[in-house]
Amino acid sequence: MSTETDPPLLELLARQAGVLSRSQALRHLSARMVERRLGSRRWQHAHRGVYVAHTGPIDREARRWIAVLSTGDGTLLGGLSALETIGFRGFITDRIDVLVRAEKTPSGPPPGVVVHRTGILPASDIHLMGRPPGTMPARSLVDAAQWAISDQRAWAIIAAGFQQRLVYADDVRTVLARMPRAKRRALISEAVTWSSGGVHSAAEADFLRLCRRAGLPEPLLQHARRDAHGRRNYLDAYFEECRLHVEIDGGHHMDVEHWWADMRRQNDLWISGDRVLRFPAWAIRHRPAEITAQLRAALRPIPFLNTSPPLPVAKGPRSKNKG
């Protein structure tokens, strides 16, 4: 906790998670006073020309401020780092992404900070009320997808933005329209179209295409239902008339905890009378004929089976043998 008592300085430190640049410090203190605080270890050096006004651990919020203040005026949080400040969940990384205008070339950013340069940064893409200042949600989502390590992760990021209701499709399309050279532009555009319609992954989109090409009924996607314990679950794809649930297994199903959670949910479905088919995401794209054949078999009407026990055969009275 900061030991400062000057109200304007305290306000600045409260707003910036205890972090300030040298130029900000000199607006409130003399150079000697700054050096005295550093020398007595009341403050600590965070990076060149950036200080933390306490001696405790540096948390994630403070690291974001250090990233922005250490890379010069006009620097913005971008991508996943900007989305995290507005509550985006599920894609937390140790790295911090910042965005600067193309004419700037920051030197020596702090460890774990990745600097991206752009020639397209209109005022409508800047969220000045952010802490720290960053890009608006739609721009942040597009940049996060551009900077993702894979196409699959890029699609998942776009889908999560819609699933968590942080963006509108028109806003994302507007951002994409003024970025003709954006990396993965076609994939992002497709992901926006599908995600705004309820598709939450590239694998789900592939599955829906497969159903349409094969002339199969179109399933409900992310269908909400409650399990035997009253918990709300979302089914990847559900053919309601046939009570057939399709689970699409991605990479996370290799994790033991996720695997057991999926098996437990599948057991609940079977107990209640539904049937479940499971397909790996790669097979939907690379083994479509096999997937289609199993779907056709599962969607075929099931003949009525009379499982009641047979009626007893009536027997007449036994005749007495008089012989």
Results as ranks from 00 to 15, higher is better:
32 R>C: 02
162 F>A: 15
300 R>N: 10
184 R>Q: 05
111 P>F: 03
107 S>P: 00
142 V>T: 10
215 G>R: 07
10 L>M: 12
110 P>T: 10
16 Q>D: 05
284 I>H: 12
108 G>Y: 00
156 A>R: 15
23 S>N: 08
18 G>W: 04
8 P>E: 00
159 A>K: 02
191 A>S: 09
250 G>A: 12
162 F>C: 12
84 E>V: 08
152 Q>F: 11
131 R>E: 08
2 S>W: 03
155 W>D: 11
38 L>Q: 04
61 E>Q: 11
255 D>E: 01
98 V>A: 04
306 N>I: 06
94 D>L: 06
2 S>L: 06
99 L>D: 02
150 S>K: 13
89 R>T: 15
137 P>A: 06
272 S>Y: 00
170 D>H: 11
64 R>N: 05
306 N>P: 09
195 S>C: 03
151 D>T: 12
70 S>K: 01
225 R>N: 03
114 V>H: 15
251 G>F: 08
7 P>M: 03
11 E>P: 01
220 L>N: 13
98 V>R: 08
63 R>K: 15
16 Q>R: 08
9 L>G: 05
155 W>E: 05
21 S>K: 08
221 L>H: 15
102 A>W: 04
278 R>T: 11
76 L>E: 06
294 Q>N: 15
75 T>Y: 00
321 N>P: 06
193 T>A: 10
91 F>S: 14
188 I>M: 02
27 R>H: 09
76 L>N: 12
199 V>L: 10
66 I>H: 04
228 A>G: 15
165 R>P: 04
89 R>W: 05
238 Y>F: 12
156 A>W: 02
116 H>M: 01
317 P>W: 11
173 R>A: 09
301 P>A: 11
281 A>E: 00
207 F>H: 12
119 G>E: 04
136 M>W: 00
272 S>H: 05
200 H>G: 14
5 T>Y: 02
288 P>E: 03
200 H>I: 05
264 R>A: 07
266 Q>T: 15
287 R>V: 07
36 R>I: 02
41 R>Q: 12
59 D>M: 05
40 S>V: 09
36 R>W: 05
229 H>S: 09
192 V>L: 03
161 G>K: 08
198 G>Y: 03
60 R>I: 02
143 D>E: 08
20 L>K: 08
168 Y>I: 10
233 N>K: 12
274 D>H: 10
157 I>M: 13
109 P>K: 05
79 G>V: 13
89 R>C: 00
138 A>T: 07
121 L>R: 13
39 G>S: 09
286 H>P: 02
251 G>D: 07
107 S>G: 08
75 T>Q: 01
286 H>R: 15
68 V>Q: 08
238 Y>D: 09
232 R>Q: 11
172 V>C: 06
14 A>S: 07
113 V>R: 12
297 A>Q: 13
7 P>F: 01
144 A>H: 09
258 H>K: 15
265 R>M: 07
288 P>L: 02
310 P>G: 11
114 V>R: 15
29 L>H: 10
308 S>N: 09
